[in-house]
């Protein structure tokens, strides 16, 4: 085992543990904070695997914005300190969907790579230049589609949040 292996395994274990705490914790806000740990250690995994840009994007978008937005929403609606007993977590469908998705993705990845070993020094490091080239050459269509999707979401948010827009059509 190299240092990289140990780091990936350790960070992965932290991520997994934190993710389990997210879905099992009875403290609503603490679950959100565990999500920060889970996503942060995932960024660490990316970093160890030389996907530098991806790691910082993970921190910037998920830790810095998405989780904060979730925490914000939780705190705006209700944020009791201490355990909440009325959490309505559907156990069986949750295990089915979450476990199924996880196993399915794992199966796809395992099937794609089998036991092939890729040396870290052989792959091109995922820095900004490499990422940019990929995004604007072979992945340009999904990239543009994603931006259209985001634009639609943006316009939708404006329409939803402005009552005067809806009233005019009524």
């Amino acid at each position: 085992m190299t240092v990289t292996d140990v780091l990936v395994c350790a960070l992965g274990a932290v991520s997994l543990g934190a993710a389990l705490r997210v879905v099992t914790s009875k403290h609503l806000v603490r679950a959100g904070l565990w999500l920060v740990v889970a996503l942060g250690s995932l960024a660490g995994v990316y970093l160890v695997l030389t996907a530098e840009l991806l790691a910082w994007v993970q921190v910037l978008i998920y830790v810095g914005a998405v989780v904060v937005l979730m925490l914000f929403a939780v705190m705006l609606t209700r944020a009791p300190i201490g355990p909440s007993d009325d959490l309505d977590r559907a156990k069986v469908p949750g295990v089915l969907i979450g476990g199924g998705a996880g196993l399915g993705l794992a199966a796809v990845l395992v099937d794609a790579y089998r036991w092939r070993e890729v040396g870290l020094s052989d792959v091109e490091p995922g820095d900004a230049g490499a990422m940019g080239r990929e995004v604007f050459t072979s992945w340009v269509l999904p990239f543009e589609l994603l931006s259209v999707l985001l634009l639609a979401a943006l316009i939708g948010a404006i329409v939803v949040s402005r009552p005067d827009v809806g009233q005019r059509s009524r």
Binding site: E52, W56, V57, V59, L60, V63, G64, A128
Partner: peptide, 13 residues
Amino acid sequence: DMGLFLVLAVVGV
């Protein structure tokens, strides 16, 4: 290599 990106990411945390 990505100092700027790193700084902006962590300041957001």
